[in-house]
Design a protein around this nucleic acid. Structure first.
Length: 722
DNA sequence: GGGCCCGCAGGG
DNA sequence: CCCTGCGGGCCC
């Protein structure tokens, strides 16, 4: 794997693409990052000696311009040519301005990207005005650039945090480690190898940057619909702390109630009108504990299969969960492998080895149909995809709409392959951008050179970017559904809505709490530390959590290490061993500064939250109310209310009764599960399975309580492609 | 952490 | 009705 893109030479000088050590004259050094590259493996090489000296590598080109280099012959995704031309032209103009220093150029580029520029093309297009109302002094101004990534000197994009508390862009960090560097670029502390190989995005910092960018709005209690993704990931890992986690038995559970009213063959986003319970639809960043919950909210219906689709109709959604080793995830685009070709004998559901060829049939055909028609495909990422930096820490997360731009069959044991490219109006959960996707050019896929059955879309896509509206939408009518939709009872909707609103809160302090609570003390973090697994705690809380346990240092007695497995100290939020990290806790000063700054801003404007709450209430927003989650889970509020009306209803032998009766917002659907009996004779008492229960409490993702129509696409700014 | 195996849902 | 499947719990 890893053959798709262009890669530099590693620390040992070996080209990461062709794995050979290039001759001196085959080496190209980037003028910006000084990384060596193998010229023979580049898609386009500088033509003259002068060009060679001024050569900028593909990474830097894409980092600075937010756009990958576009080699000759690259297909442009629709719209890119038109709409982003002016932006690209503006970037080129900056680059060409010899009166500017590199630093000034970077600043200008950043302004351009973040929509603050107020420059020519704003007026030209007249559609990029909204976000920054005037030049108010926001949190970022106050911080004066301390948050910037020390590689690119810009706000960290997809921020990752080293155990020593320093923050970088994921891309910059990866480039650093790819050169064989194993120490922090800022303080030279050692970077643990696991973090170097699998850096995880620090979702609190994503939130911090988003809030800082929009700090004016935050204080207004204003829109922040993009946050909901974050705190969900950053919540304590209930699987290790609560009763619910100890409960077992979802393995063979029946599906719970579907809470949305879209048919199973519905294409595109789940809109608010099909979400009678929350009236907000499924938003980018929504998280679920498992595939059952994901299914209940309509993001992806099949509970084992990774592809939802019908060969005649098209595919509606996919899940990325690492089931196929060839998959490659670059966030805004990824390569997906079709299903099939595996030996499932022995009553298996999955298998690792690809034992025979796949064909474009069934689900694989469905994906191909979606490719050819340019249908929107919902994408859900699972924590089980361990190799991706974009995977959520736990559970599953809705990452928005993608389109399949091409598909083909790969050589070897033939598998169907699909190139997915993001095209959603909301920003991806890992960016701190305020805007969604802008049409982008396709990445270069090297495996295509040896591919067969290459399929590309011939006609215009059904889902595309409308230049007039500056947004992605249906350009053709959506394919009609052939499935029936289950209704949701009116009174249940109302009951649920009231219950949800009860748990709703929108004060600034609550928002800070949601995003920045320490997972131990549940207060807004003081002196935050970020673990290598990207969880955040107060320094003192984390220290306190292990105070009873004496850490046995790694010294040996009689040659034998004292630290056995039992002495390993696990992150309070996940099973990661953080023993080493605990030995030398470093505060994430940059995160701390943002939080402090936001906090003091919030305190300045303490009052106006009441009205804001009123307004927001109308949209039926809800929130997690996560701070009480352990004792009285937020969902139980709802469940209890409803259950008290209908006590012990689904108690019965037929497990599907409640489903068929549409006991709607009952978040807890009960069902029985038969357990396999292991030989020992007639013990009838145990053999009928235990009652299993699924609650939806974890499925309630946060809504910032604001669906104000002013939210949408703001500035057209270019998204970093890879 | 790896292997095993189950019911269930959905496509055809 | 049969076949498939990027889950999930459990046991080791």
């Amino acid at each position: 794997m890893g053959q798709t893109t262009q890669l530099p030479c590693a620390g040992d000088g070996i080209c990461m693409l062709c794995k050979t050590k290039p001759l001196e004259e085959e080496k190209l050094t980037c003028k910006t990052c000084v990384t060596p590259w193998h010229a023979n493996c580049l898609l386009s090489r500088p033509a003259t000696l002068a060009d060679t000296l001024q050569w900028e590598c593909p990474d830097c080109t894409s980092l600075s311009a937010g756009q990958p280099p576009v080699p000759a012959g690259t297909v442009l995704v629709d719209g890119a040519g038109e709409s982003s031309n002016s932006l690209i032209a503006a970037i080129r103009a900056i680059e060409a301005d010899t009166s500017l220093t590199e630093r000034q150029k970077a600043n200008k580029r950043q302004q351009l990207m973040s929509g603050k520029a107020g420059s020519e093309e704003d007026d030209e297009n007249g559609k990029k005005k909204k976000i920054h109302k005037g030049g108010e002094k926001d949190v970022l101004d106050v911080l004066g650039g301390t948050l910037n990534c020390s590689f690119c000197m810009q706000l960290p994009d997809r921020p990752v945090t080293t155990p020593c508390g320093h923050n970088f862009c994921l891309k910059c960090f990866q480039k650093w480690t790819a050169q064989g560097k194993s120490t922090c670029a800022k303080c030279r502390h050692i970077i643990p190898s696991k973090m170097a190989s699998q850096p995880r995005i620090n979702s609190s910092l994503v939130a911090a940057i988003r809030m800082a960018k929009m700090s004016k709005n935050v204080v207004d209690g204003g829109p922040s619909r993009v946050y909901h993704c974050v705190h969900n990931q950053n919540r304590p890992d209930q699987a290790y702390t609560t009763e619910r986690a100890k409960k077992r038995g979802n393995a063979n559970a029946a599906s719970g109630k579907i809470f949305v009213t879209v048919p199973h063959d519905h294409f595109g986003p789940i809109p608010p009108e099909n979400d009678p319970i929350r009236n907000r639809g499924v938003l980018v960043g929504d998280c679920w504990e498992d595939r059952y919950e994901c299914r209940q909210w309509g993001a992806h219906f099949p509970h084992v299969s990774g592809i939802a689709g019908q060969s005649k109709h098209g595919a509606q959604s996919v899940v990325l969960s690492g089931g196929y080793m060839d998959d490659e995830d670059h966030g805004e685009w990824f390569l997906y492998t079709g299903s099939g070709g595996r030996d499932l004998s022995g009553n298996k559901r999955t298998s690792k080895e690809q034992s025979f060829d796949q064909q474009f049939e069934k689900s694989n055909k469905a994906l191909q149909v979606s490719c050819m028609n340019g249908y929107p495909v919902r994408v859900v990422r699972s924590h089980k995809e361990k190799r991706s930096s974009y995977a959520p820490e736990k559970g599953l997360r809705y990452d928005g709409i993608y389109r399949i731009e091409m598909c083909w069959r790969k050589v070897g044991i033939q598998v169907c392959r699909y190139l997915f490219v993001r095209c959603d109006n909301d920003p991806a959960p890992w960016t701190s951008d305020e805007h969604g996707d802008w049409p982008r050019s396709l990445p270069v896929i090297s495996e295509l050179n040896e591919a067969t059955d290459i399929t590309e879309r011939k006609e215009s896509p059904s889902w595309g970017f409308d230049d007039g509206d500056s947004m992605w939408k249906w350009l053709k009518t959506a394919p009609p559904s052939s499935k029936r939709v289950e209704e949701v009872k009116e009174e249940d909707v109302n009951t649920a809505r009231i219950a949800i609103r009860k748990a709703h809160n929108t004060s600034v302090r609550d928002k800070l709490l949601k995003e920045f609570s320490c997972l131990i003390c549940r207060q807004v973090m003081v002196s935050p530390v970020t673990t290598p697994c990207a969880h955040n705690f107060c320094k003192s809380c984390l220290e306190g959590a292990f105070v009873g346990q004496t850490f046995v240092r790694e010294r040996s007695r009689g040659g034998r290490s004292l630290r056995s497995k039992k002495n390993v100290m696990k992150c309070p939020s996940c099973p990661t061993d953080i023993s080493d990290f605990l030995q030398n806790l470093q505060v994430n000063r940059e995160l701390m500064d943002v939080i402090e700054s936001l906090k003091s801003k919030a305190e300045e404007n303490e009052d106006p939250e009441e009205e804001a709450q009123e307004d927001a209430g109308g949209s039926g927003g809800n929130s997690f109310a996560e701070s009480e989650n352990e004792e009285t889970s937020s969902g139980t509020d709802i469940g209890d209310d409803l259950n008290s009306e209908k006590p012990s209803e689904a108690e019965g032998d037929e497990n599907k009764s409640s489903v068929e009766k549409h006991e709607v917002p009952v978040p807890a659907v009960k069902h029985t599960v038969k357990r396999k009996q292991v030989d020992d004779g007639g013990n009838s008492s145990e053999e009928v399975g235990a009652k299993k229960m699924r609650t939806s409490s974890e499925a309630e993702t946060v809504d910032e309580g604001n669906d104000s129509p002013s939210s949408p696409l703001h500035v057209a700014s270019e998204n970093d492609f890879q």
